[in-house]
Design a protein around this nucleic acid. Structure first.
Lengths: 154, 154
DNA sequence: CTCATTGCAAATAATTTGCATGTAA
DNA sequence: TTACATGCAAATTATTTGCAATGAG
């Protein structure tokens, strides 16, 4: 589990400001998210949360993840499998993604040099950047190997 | 309209290989896409195409855009407004995006230095990159100005 | 007590699919 | 002629919402 202190504070501050309440469902969902905040889908999260509290419904998970997103704790992402996925909005240790178009594998990487260039460009356009998304879609080593063994059949 | 020769050839090759046929609906849709291949949605495309042929249905547009995607002519993109948008898979003149979180404005930019760094990183992980997505979400100059005039009310 | 929250089921929204009919090749 | 393509409507899928019941503060 990553260091979540900062995010817990953000969430508490947001909830206090909006007059929102803390419930055991929310707590479970938030804990489950913090435990594995690595591009999880609603369905995956729901499955984990139901291990502790089988009565929790879809809608509550959707609503809580929206809350996490609004409070700046999580970011919504879509990769291309039709699902919305969530990850910690962790700017400090920000990672980007290499996605295999064959097997959907996701590899994370960090590239401080790119982040720096990004900032420059945004600044040239007068933008203030809140977060970013940098994804490369291609073929991973494993799938390249498979493709070599069993060539196309079209 | 950008230079589309290369893409027409890709599409023809793909259709020939798969034994697919050329129809007037497909032609209209493909032309409409080539005319404005700048992150269009299905709905926008349908509206344009119906100016020429009012009988064309949603399904055909969806099917044709899937065909363009499979043939490598178009790429599917999702920005965050719930719609899938399409753009020319133009690697040569590839552009990335700055997206305003307030007004949804999309600004394009090019950054060859970043593209170069990307390739390096992908190579380190053994990936072959087919295309990529690089989006920065933030606040544009206009909306920064508005926010300054009319501060938050939460 | 009051009002946010929950779970369910129903409602939306975007996209896909089945099928009878039309039509390239 | 032989399938592929089309348009429609129905089906799917992901997500949102209305509402009565529940529960936090």
């Amino acid at each position: 589990m990553p260091n979540t202190e900062h995010f817990r504070e953000m969430l508490n501050a947001y909830m206090a400001k909006k007059g929102l309440r803390s419930t055991k469902q929310r707590d479970h969902i938030v804990e489950a998210f913090f435990a594995h905040p690595d591009h999880v889908s609603i369905e995956e999260l729901l499955a984990r949360v139901r291990e502790r509290d089988p009565a929790i419904g879809y809608a509550t998970v959707y609503r809580t993840l929206k809350l996490l997103t609004e409070s700046g704790v999580a970011n919504e992402r879509r990769f291309g499998d039709g699902l919305t996925r969530y990850e910690l909005a962790d700017d400090e240790t920000h990672h980007d993604h290499l996605i295999c178009m064959e097997c959907q594998k996701i590899v994370e990487f960090e590239a401080p040099q790119i982040e720096q260039l990004q900032e420059q460009i945004a600044h040239q356009h007068g933008f203030v950047v809140r977060w970013h998304k940098h994804e490369m879609y291609g073929v991973c080593p494993d799938c390249q190997r498979k493709a070599a063994q069993k060539p196309a059949r079209n």
